[in-house]
């Protein structure tokens, strides 16, 4: 049992090293030799623009739920005036970056892993190599760069709509005071909170996109599943591993920021 544990630990360390090397070399190629603004903007459209409706919808409803729950909790202590502060802080510091990242992984990350996996299985990646085009620079680098740009913007959209969602339930539906709500938002939110949220969004974007691309890129090396099943497993692994990574790294980043 101990030897199994040791073997698995070593494999995990090896995989971590492979992912890190894969990500760094992809980024290095993309920002230096093979940089293409066209490819990055195309990926910003795929990762960023296409996810806006989902982020907006979930952000607004998350804010609405926070507003409702927060109001009923705070009113017990006669502190409903703190609703704006509570919603703004919880969204900007935690819920905004984390939920945005999980949603984008679900929508864009899984399709990213599947798309690259299919390209691997249909020899499109081999074709790039024979054309002397680095597949990492062509497929992976632009996606990581696009994610680094898109995630903070999507998080901002989530945060703003979440706060408006909280305003809707806390003020309009529950007849709270609008002035107190916005004053709470303005007073409680510090630049450090906003900055911290962006740091998280930036890290989540880079990490999750890297994991999704890695899963798709090496889909042919999976010993447990081949072909279409291998691609489907890559997409599933991409979402599961990315979601776990988001939550674990969220704790680590938060402990550094506080």
């Amino acid at each position: 049992m101990i030897s199994n544990l040791g073997r698995n630990f070593l494999l995990a360390v090896r995989d971590l090293g492979s992912v890190a090397t894969f990500g760094m070399s992809s980024l290095a190629i993309s920002v230096t030799r093979d940089f293409s603004i066209h490819k990055v903007s195309d990926q910003i459209y795929q990762i960023g623009v296409k996810c806006v409706p989902l982020i907006a919808l979930v952000g607004f409803f998350t804010g609405m739920v926070l507003g409702l729950q927060g109001y009923y909790t705070l009113v017990r202590f006669g502190s409903e005036g703190l609703l704006g502060s509570a919603i703004a802080l919880s969204l900007v510091r935690e819920l905004g970056p984390v939920l945005t990242a999980i949603l984008v992984v679900g929508q864009a990350g899984s399709s990213m892993a599947a798309e690259i996996g299919v390209q691997r299985n249909s020899e499109q990646i081999d074709a790039l190599e024979t054309m002397d085009i680095d597949p990492k620079g062509f497929l992976v680098g632009p996606r990581i760069l696009a994610a680094l740009i898109s995630f903070p913007i999507l998080t901002t959209i989530f945060d703003i709509l979440g706060i408006y969602g909280g305003y809707f339930t806390g003020v309009i539906v529950m007849n709270g005071d609008g002035g107190t709500f916005w004053n709470g938002v303005q007073v409680s939110l510090l630049w450090g909170d906003i900055w911290g949220g962006y740091v998280k969004a930036f890290f989540f974007g880079g990490l999750t996109t890297l994991i999704c691309c890695f899963e798709g890129f090496f889909t042919h090396l999976k010993s447990s599943a081949f072909g279409a099943r291998g691609v489907s497993q890559s997409a599933t692994n991409a979402v599961v591993i990315s979601s776990i990574t988001i939550l674990v790294s969220d704790y680590l980043i938060t402990s550094f920021l506080l």
Binding site: E115, Q119, S122, E123, Q124, D126, T130, M131, I133, F138
Partner: peptide
């Protein structure tokens, strides 16, 4: 290299496929 199943990029048009080695390299 011409692959057994062509290995054309299905998300790119025919023009983009043929032009790929020139536009990239």
């Amino acid at each position: 290299y011409m692959f057994q199943h062509n290995a054309l990029f299905d998300s790119l048009t025919v023009l983009q496929n043929i032009a790929l080695p020139l536009s990239e390299k």
